[in-house]
Simulated scan of single mutants.
Amino acid sequence: MSDTGACYYSVLGLHKQASASEIRDAYRKLALKWHPDRWMKDPTAAGEANRRFQQIQEAYSVLSDAAKRTVYDAGLLSLLADDDDEVSFC
């Protein structure tokens, strides 16, 4: 889960029953919107864009992989995490 503890589905603006194509489409839309290169000219927003982009990538990496998504939906992702980050589920 992201450092902020946000639900991966809410990060991508999706419901839990979202299909693989809905996940991919949401990721592409948000990745284009929040890509740090788009925000280079506005240094005050660049940090926020970088943080959001990382959250979006993290959410997509879990939800786009069927095995990881199953583990995440079961609430067991924290058991597989290498670090001690707090994980919350939606």
Rank of each mutant, 00 (worst) to 15 (best):
A49L: 08
A18M: 09
R28A: 15
G5A: 07
A49P: 05
R24G: 06
A45G: 01
L79N: 10
S21W: 06
D83N: 13
A45T: 01
A46T: 03
A31G: 05
E58C: 07
A46N: 03
A66P: 14
A66G: 10
K29D: 09
W39R: 10
S61Y: 01
H35T: 03
Y72V: 10
Q17G: 06
S19K: 12
M40K: 15
K68G: 06
F89A: 10
S2I: 00
F89C: 11
T44D: 04
D37V: 12
A26S: 11
D85R: 15
D83M: 10
P43K: 14
L32F: 13
R51I: 11
R24C: 09
W39N: 08
R52I: 14
N50S: 15
R69N: 03
D65V: 15
A45D: 01
K68L: 15
Q54M: 12
K16C: 05
L12R: 01
K33H: 00
A81G: 06
K41I: 11
K68N: 05
V87K: 07
D73P: 04
P43T: 13
A18F: 06
D37I: 12
Q57H: 05
H15T: 11
A59K: 09
A67R: 12
D82N: 07
A46F: 07
S88R: 15
L12G: 03
D83T: 09
K29W: 00
Y9H: 06
D3H: 01
D82H: 04
L30H: 00
L14N: 01
L80H: 03
G13C: 02
P36W: 01
Q17F: 11
A81Q: 05
E86A: 14
A31N: 02
H35L: 07
D85N: 13
L76K: 04
Y8T: 02
L14I: 00
Y9N: 04
M40N: 07
G47N: 13
V87F: 08
L14W: 00
L32W: 04
A74R: 14
A45E: 00
A20H: 09
E48Y: 14
Y27D: 00
L12N: 03
Q17D: 14
L32T: 10
M40Q: 06
D84Q: 14
Y72T: 10
D83S: 13
D37M: 07
C90S: 05
Q54G: 11
D84S: 14
T4A: 15
Q57E: 11
K41S: 14
K33E: 14
K33D: 06
D85V: 11
A66L: 12
A20E: 02
N50H: 04
A59C: 14
A67C: 08
